[in-house]
Amino acid sequence: MTALEIKDLNHYYVKGKNVLNDVNIELEDGEILSILGPSGCGKTTLLRIIAGLEKETSGSILMKDQIISDHFHTVLTENRDVGLVVQERALFPHLTIINNVMFGVSGSKTNRHSTAMRLLKLFRVDRYAYNYPNEISSGEQQRVAIARAMAPNPKILLMDEPFGTLDQSLTNQLRVETRKILKDNNITAIIVSHDFDDALSMSDKVIVIEDGTVIQSGSAKDITHISREKSVKFSSIKANT
């Protein structure tokens, strides 16, 4: 079943200066898609539009064959059933780790607690359940952020530069762990990154955006093969960050 379909999506802040041009994406259930591109290319804007945090100028978005946004109506972010992980983690500093993960889960307190604990165990951060976010490392915070986004069982998990501030070895480790968890749980995910390695190691599909336009799309292997030049370019971006 199609988890997400984006049709002819355009977006601008200033008329005549499009930040996204005719974007078309189709994503099947359980697939992981990476949106790759340099800083300022429009990939985060695309993610925010999918999440409902911004309204596209034109085009339509369908989730599980249901229209969630088009010219006539918009489903609010809180009703879209999407999970969001951001580079800054944005954990709620006044809540303990367990309360952060329980935050978006509905149902009885026992059920919410067991769901949160199961995810914390999955990400191996359960021992910090009753600590506050500032008391754990950035890698652990990122694990908690992903667990929190997964906890309400969203239709799609959106991740914006999820490993952007972490060191290389931690990033490698988290990529492997996160992909395994997403695949084991059949979670559809979109990862926005400017890092080619993120895309290669985590996703089934990759699209490359430059200046708001999708310039390439395909499987991770296809992209590596076709855009050798781009690979060099993105590697250099990565080396500079």
Binding site: A51, E78, L84, A90, G104, A149, P152
Partner: peptide
């Protein structure tokens, strides 16, 4: 951080709930 609001909204928390559960404690 405004990203806290973005995340909270994807966790089905908006309006009064966002104010009471996230902003007021902070």
């Amino acid at each position: 951080n405004s990203r806290v609001d973005d995340v909270a909204r994807t966790l089905k928390t908006s309006g009064w709930a966002l104010l009471a559960q996230v902003h007021l404690p902070l």
